[in-house]
Amino acid sequence: MKAADEPAYLTVGTDVSAKYRGAFCEAKIKTVKRLVKVKN
Rank of each mutant, 00 (worst) to 15 (best):
K33T: 05
M1P: 00
A3W: 08
A27I: 02
L10G: 06
A8D: 10
Y20T: 05
V12I: 15
V38C: 09
K19C: 06
G13V: 02
M1A: 08
V32S: 05
A3V: 14
G22A: 03
D5M: 13
K2T: 05
R21W: 03
P7L: 11
T14S: 15
P7Q: 04
V16L: 10
D15P: 09
C25A: 08
A18F: 12
T11W: 01
T11K: 12
T14L: 10
L35A: 10
K19F: 01
V16K: 01
A8I: 08
M1E: 09
G13M: 03
A8T: 08
K33V: 04
A23D: 07
K39F: 13
V12R: 12
M1N: 06
K30Y: 02
V16G: 00
P7W: 05
A4T: 09
K2C: 05
K39W: 10
G22I: 01
R21E: 15
D5H: 13
A23E: 12
M1W: 03
D15L: 04
V32N: 00
N40V: 04
F24C: 02
K28Y: 02
Y20V: 15
P7E: 11
K39D: 12
Y20M: 14
K30S: 09
A18T: 06
T11H: 11
K28E: 11
K19Q: 13
K2R: 13
Y20A: 09
V32T: 11
R34Q: 08
I29A: 12
A4M: 07
N40I: 06
C25Q: 11
I29G: 03
A23H: 03
S17L: 03
A4F: 03
R21Q: 15
K2Y: 01
V16F: 02
I29E: 04
G22K: 01
R21C: 08
T11E: 11
K39M: 13
V38F: 07
Y9E: 06
V12Q: 09
V36M: 14
S17D: 04
G22M: 02
L10T: 09
T14M: 14
A23S: 13
G13T: 02
V12E: 15
K30E: 09
L10H: 04
V36N: 14
C25F: 08
D5T: 10
V32P: 00
S17F: 02
V12T: 14
T11I: 07
A3S: 13
T14R: 09
A8C: 03
A8L: 11
S17G: 12
C25W: 06
K28N: 05
S17Y: 01
K39G: 09
M1H: 09
K33Q: 11
L10S: 10
R34L: 06
